[in-house]
Design a protein around this nucleic acid. Sequence first.
DNA 1: TCTAGAATTGACTAAATAGTCATTCATACA
DNA 2: TGTATGAATGACTATTTAGTCAATTCTAGA
Lengths: 191, 191
Amino acid sequence: MKDKVEDKKTALLQAALKLFTEKGFHGTSTAQISKEAGVATGTLFNYFPTKEDLINGLYFDVKGKLSRGMSKDVDSQNTFQDKFRKMWYNLIEWGLNNQEDFRFVNQFCSSPYITDYTREVVMEEYVFYHDLVMEGIASGEFGDYPEGMIISMFYQSSRTIVDFILYSEPHDKNKAIEDGFQIIWEGLAKK
Amino acid sequence: MKDKVEDKKTALLQAALKLFTEKGFHGTSTAQISKEAGVATGTLFNYFPTKEDLINGLYFDVKGKLSRGMSKDVDSQNTFQDKFRKMWYNLIEWGLNNQEDFRFVNQFCSSPYITDYTREVVMEEYVFYHDLVMEGIASGEFGDYPEGMIISMFYQSSRTIVDFILYSEPHDKNKAIEDGFQIIWEGLAKK
DNA sequence: TCTAGAATTGACTAAATAGTCATTCATACA
DNA sequence: TGTATGAATGACTATTTAGTCAATTCTAGA
């Protein structure tokens, strides 16, 4: 049955997510992943021929979810600043609601186990984001900074704020999110 | 002889730095580290009883160097902004000139292999930095943001700019550094 | 030069690893 | 009900791992 097949694959991905994030790629054995997923050791290799295939599949999966979470309702915003604010809030909320996924992506985004091919395929889902930044530069909303710098600063700032909220546990979470947006927007906007 | 002892210890730390950064903690065997350092497998365990002691020693070492690099000549600056600009430039230059060290610190700063004790001891070297940020908040140079948020945003931005320079290879490195400072300063400063 | 103590060595071990494969099991259809 | 197909299993293997330790080499002072 199709559902059961997907069940086991999903269970394996979920187990891998948890363990890779917690103990790293080499720190997690395939036996542990199988056990956590509740399947036999051989089953893992039915779905993912090698351990590297597993982490690449997982990376693709999680990056896709992040992309969809980030872009939600952005189009329906009126001003450019509102589009970016919406994206900011989406990103932070997604990070807070999907902590393991967020940590996984950030931990493995520059890992040698993720192949160039995986990176390429994943990149396609972020074209809308690049386009939006280009638009902001062209229309003079942003200061005269390179596209790649704006993108990295924005994304890394979201990581920083998510970590800040999780680690420092501020009494007013929403203020922390808005503070973060103020900092990055004031930093990047044209003066 | 004292020098030779230090030689081997240094060689081991250097080898571990290179390999841990490249292949991760579990991805690097103690045998590889010994080989890279040009010593026997047993020698590693003379200096560091366990592999975890090795990475903790390394973390302590590198964090100390980073702290000293960051704070150089900051005291002799006149204005508050100049102190922060100096620290920004120090940080970026140190990151560019010590890429492996920088990558290592950033990769392992939230790793489970680094003990709470190591973190505590390391923290002591960053008191001056915390004090400076507190001073900036008190004197109204910074906007009304939590101390921890300012510290994280500043440091993570430096990571972002170092990575941007290394990965995007902009034609004008110095403009990228100053751009980065503008972004983070405009973001954090009181309006 | 001789020697005591420390540093260095690398063969060794018990445990763990990624991946295999012959066997068993579940399902869907005739 | 009988059976054919593919999924699931877990014992197994060849290799690799962190760490040990008895033997060797080096060093500094007498």
